[in-house]
Each structure stands twice: as structure tokens, then as C-alpha cells.
Design a binder for these strands. Structure first.
Lengths: 199, 199, 199, 199
DNA sequence: TATGAATGAGCATTCATTCAT
DNA sequence: CATGAATGAATGCTCATTCAT
């Protein structure tokens, strides 16, 4: 009735959607997309079952919203990287963040990996993944060059492969896989061990 | 008039199971385990829906049979590798075969990758994957040492990560990913370019 | 606009469950447990097929709910019996009610009989039947003694056998079986013909 | 080719059908008609699955053949009874045989009871049961009269009810039910305790 | 006669989605 | 905005029956 109602409603909407997205991320990552039901997400989120189609129209709509959420998260990281003053700082930041994401944001990592494999079934995913992959040289080649690394094209390719390999092995093998050794290898290889980064 | 001989029956059984396993591999790889229905597999295989439970009891039994098929295939490759006379020959064989498997047996590759991510849901998969991973040092460390490669532990770890990374990138990106460049990098790095292998 | 109150929901739930229980009783009694499908029950009840597993989880859960319903009904009758002031009144009440149940609640009678025969397959049924049977002497022996009936143990045994025999014959033979004659025989035998009962 | 072939075939046919009928009786009695599959019967009988529809056309045809088998068995008993020289001898024979059938041919008893309850679904059963029931007075009334039992109509009715009651209680309660006490009660009541019967 | 592979209708159950309140 | 009862299509699986040999 009063003008602030619509603002309040908007806040309620945002809060409900947030709860649903968090629950969906958690369960999709834990059990996979198909093995997770709308009911389970509703229970985990503490909302009524009917509220999920209400906000996200379909189950696929929900997973696309989760993907967009993850992308926004990645973009924020990139912004942070760009704030590092030197090329080597940026490089170290990227490596540190990649490894820390793999270890600490296991759920995001797992979800993104398993959605990537279903790239043909989630159009949004194809768009996002191909876009990121193709944008990479433009973004990182100058950085590797500026950092004085030889064969930067080959090196960028290799770095991408290694990070993806570490990511998937950590999902599958967990702590049976000595992830820190790979990180140290990379930092030593690119002579980044003494480089300071700011968070 | 007389009933078919048990040898005839066995042949019929083998042929039907083969059709089902091939169809299952294809569809599980394409669309994932949960998104593939028994009906779809039956249609793809050209058999009646009821024949699949008849032979594989449950859907999970079917996926396990597909995994066992893939494992047997991998073991056959390993036997072949052991026939190479020199350590460098074995190493080159492994690398060549890994890359060729990634490119040419896309379906197996995709299925194994996506099942690996669901390792918690497929006990058979955990067993297979952990077994292979833990057996690797014993199998390959002597080989790397004999081939005169420095830091063999670190190198084996890295090689595993790179091959997994290439595998997953090829699934996701297909030919957008210059897979040959990574292979050449590895062959050059381990000085295998001139090594002959026999097939 | 506002969601239904939990009281409203509860009423809706009760009404739907009632419809399902009634339809299940009817069809289970008519055709037997295994020969009755969830679909048929849903059609008879006028609800969607999916609503039955929603409320009763499994088909066996449904039959157990039907049994519990029948048991509650039997217990209510027993309460009524205990309100008769004299032993002979109680006895007459039990006999009258048993015969009237056999005739008028043909469905319950038939269902309980056919489930009793499948006692090994329905644990709930075993529990209920054995409980009732073993509780009988404690309940009825004093009553027969108080009513001055000689050989009460033998007589109770015989009475049970006769009532079960009448029950099953009435199911199988229907009105071809002169049920009233047996009732009169019993009333005469125990000298209950002049005893008043209150309903 | 030679003339005796067809006779041999007939013997083989008889043997196979016998094995199937015995297995069917056993499993139908144990688990019920619907819960028993043709496959299970074939395994129990030690024949191929396809042989059962070959001989009995449908599953219902099989159950009807089992019923006919049971009827033939009952008729043989009746023949035996008629060989007893006195009315009391015949009466005692019937009672003894009924109780011994209940205890020792538990399977027949159970199967016939559960089929009787499904009388509407097995036309053969209705025919058999009603026929036997309606033939009973003609068969047994003269016998009771000759044995000097008062109120023979009422007594025959009661005897039928008691035997059916004992039958069903023994199925449901097994040895928890003191079946011998009922038998002794009947023998005493009809003064048959000293009557000799020949087997 | 006997075999068992093959079929496909039917089953119980799951679950995304709709909708009255 | 939020609820959860209701729907019905789709799933994995069972099993009576058919049929080539």
C-alpha cells in the first residue's frame, strides 16, 4: 500500500532467490543435476516447493541462474587480479586463486566441471565456456610476455591444461592428490616464489 | 525342432549384450547417466526395452558393465605398451596412445570423465579410479628413471595432470583446443621425438 | 493471496486420504492385494495416480494403513462391548456384532481374511492377528465363566473356530449359506435369547 | 517313426505336466497366485520357461489345472470314505481325514482357501465350490441320521462351519492353535471315540 | 518335445510443474 | 509473496507370452 512496500518486496524476493541459489549450488555439486530434485532444493533452502518454479520458471532455468552466479564470481576475481601492480603479481595471483578455488570452493569447482561435460545440453554453458576460453590469449598473453616468460603461447596453453587437470584430479581424488607440489612447481617455473601479492 | 545348442544361445546372448553395451556407451557419454533412459538405450540398440534389465539386472549394473568394458580395453593397451623394448619406447607409446584415445575414443573418454566426477555414486568407479591412480607410481616411476628423466616423481605427477587436463579440455572444447601442440611439447620435453615404437 | 492455513491443508489431506483408503479397501477386498493396481485405486478414489505414493509412500504402506483402519474399528467395537452391564449381555453383544460385521462389512471381512492367509507377506498382519488371538483368553475367559458356561476354555476355542468358519463361508458362499441358523444355535446354546443389549 | 513313439511322447508329456503341476501347487500355496511367476514355477519344476504356456496355455489355465488336480484328490478320499461299513465309521473317517488333511496337506489347504476367497476371479473355482457345497446335504444327511445324531440339518451346518474354521485358523496360526482339542471335542460329541475305521 | 531369447504391456514410483488459496 | 496438494508424464523394472530353432 505505502510506497516502500515494493522495495521491501524486492528485498524479500532477493533473499528467497539467494537461499534457493545457494541450496541449488550445494546440491547440484554434491549429487549432480539430475539426481537433485526441486523438493530437495526447497527443503535445503527452507522454502516451499512451489517457490522455485515461481522464481526460476524451470529446473533448467535454475541451473542457468546458478551458472550466471558462478560467472559473476569469476569476474569479480578477475577484477581483483587486475589490481595487482606487476605482471608477475597478476600471474601469481591467478595461480594462487586458481588453486585456492580448487581446494576451498570444491563445490563450485565440481559443479562447473560436471556442467562443462554437459556443454551440449546447457546452451548457456557453451556460451560461457567458449567465450572465456577464446578470450584467454588476449587477456593473458600480454601478461606472460610482460613477465618475461619464453614461448608464451605454448606456455599459456600448458598452464590452462595443468590447471584444468589439477581441478579435475582434485575433485576425483581429493587429498590423495598432492596439489601443493604442482603449485610449487608452477611458482618455481615462472620464478614467482618471491613475488608479493595483495589481497 | 530340436532346441538351439547352448553355443548358439551363447552367441545370441553375446551379440545382444554387445549391441546394448555399445548403445549405452554412446548415450551415457553423450547425455550423461541420469539423462539417458533405458528406453532410449533400447531404441538405439534396436532391442526391446525389457531385454536390458534381462541382461544387466539394473541400470547401475549396465553402467558397471560398460566401465568394465573400458577397463579391459585399458588393460589391453597396457599389455601392448609393455611389449615396447625400451623405456623411451614405452613412454612414447603411452603418450601417443593417451592422445589418440582422447581424440579417437571420445565417447569412452567422456563417459569415464563424467563418471569420475560422480565417483561417490558409483562404487565400481571409485574402486577402478583409485586402484589405477595408486598403482601408477609403481608402474611408471621405474620407466621414467630408466628413461633418464630428472625429478621423476614430480614429472609423473605433472604428466598425469597434463593428460587429464588435455582429456577434459578436449571433451569440452573439441577441436577448438590445439591438442597436437601439447603432445609435441611433451615429446620434445622428454626427448622422444626420434624414438621408434612398434604397433 | 495468502497461503492456506495449516488447518485447511490438514482437512484437505484427511479428505484425500479417506477417499484413497476407502477405494483401496474396496478393491483389495474385491480382487486381492496383488491383483489391484495403484492406478485402479486412484481411478476408484477419483484422484491422480501420483497422489497415492505421495500419501502412503508404497503400496504396502497403503495396505497397512487400511489394516490399521480396520483394527481401530474393531477396538471401538470392543469398547462398546465393555459397556454392556452383564456378562451375558457382553457375550450376546459380541456374537451379534460378529455376525453383523460378517454380513454388513463384507469388505473388511474379506480383506482381513485374505490378508490373514498371506500373513507371511504382511508383517503388520502377523503382529495384529497374533496379538488379538493371544489376548483372547484373558479377555473372554472371565466373561464365559461369569456367564456360567461350562468348560469355558473348550467353549472359547470352539466359539472362535465357529465364528471364523462362518466368516469364511459367508465370503465364499454368500447368501447360499444360512448364517442366521448358526447365530440362533449359538444364542440358544449359551442361553442368550432373552438377554437385552443396548446399542 | 516306430509306432511306440507316440506312447513314449505321451509319457514324457505326462511327466512334464506332473512336474509343473506339483511345482505350481507348492509355489501358489506358499506365495500366492500373483506373487508366483511362471519363471519361478519353471525353475522349481526343472523345466524351461516356455514349456508352461506350451502345456497350459495361460497362467490361469495352469491354476485351473491345479484346482482340478485337487478336486480329483478330494474325490478319491470320498471313494475311500464310502468303503467304511457303518455310518459312524464313515463319519469318523471324514473327521479324521479332514483334520489330517489340514495338518499334513497344509499346502493344498492353503491354496484352496486362498483360491476360495478369489472365487469371483476363478470361474472354475466357483463351479467346484458351489457344486460341492450344494451336494453336501444329499451326501451327508442320511449318514448323520443313520448315525443317530439329533438335529442333523443343524449339525451338518455346524460341522461344516467348524471344519472350515479349523482349516483357516490352522493356516493362519499354525501350531499356536490346539487343533487336537477340537477334533476330540467332535469325536466325543458324536460318540465316535470307540469307532474303528479301516484305511 | 524342449529351450530360452525376445517382446511389450503393465506395474509402482518419482518428480517438475500448476494452481487455489 | 508463499504454500503445499494435486497432476500426469516418464522412469526402471517385471513378467506372461511368443517363437525360431
Amino acid at each position: 500500500m505505502s510506497p516502500r512496500s515494493s522495495k521491501q518486496f524486492e528485498e524479500i524476493r532477493q533473499a528467497s532467490q539467494r537461499k534457493i541459489l545457494d541450496a541449488a549450488l550445494k546440491l547440484f555439486a554434491e549429487k549432480g543435476y539430475h539426481a537433485t530434485s526441486i523438493s530437495q532444493i526447497a527443503t535445503e533452502a527452507g522454502v516451499a516447493k512451489g517457490l522455485i518454479p515461481h522464481y526460476f520458471k524451470t529446473k533448467e532455468g535454475l541451473v542457468q541462474a546458478v551458472i550466471e552466479d558462478a560467472v559473476a564470481h569469476g569476474d569479480a576475481l578477475f577484477e581483483k587480479m587486475m589490481k595487482q601492480p606487476t605482471a608477475k603479481g597478476k600471474l601469481r595471483f591467478v595461480i594462487e586463486e586458481a588453486f585456492s578455488m580448487i581446494v576451498e570452493e570444491h563445490e563450485y569447482n565440481k559443479l562447473l566441471a560436471s556442467l562443462s561435460l554437459k556443454i551440449d545440453q546447457f546452451p548457456k554453458m557453451r556460451e560461457v565456456v567458449m567465450g572465456k576460453y577464446e578470450g584467454m590469449p588476449q587477456l593473458f598473453l600480454p601478461l606472460l610476455q610482460e613477465a618475461g616468460i619464453p614461448n608464451p603461447e605454448e606456455e599459456l596453453l600448458l598452464l590452462g591444461v595443468i590447471l584444468d587437470g589439477v581441478g579435475i584430479q582434485h575433485i576425483v581424488l581429493g587429498d590423495a592428490m598432492p596439489i601443493e607440489k604442482i603449485k610449487d612447481y608452477l611458482l618455481k617455473k615462472y620464478d614467482l616464489e618471491q613475488v608479493e601479492i595483495k589481497h
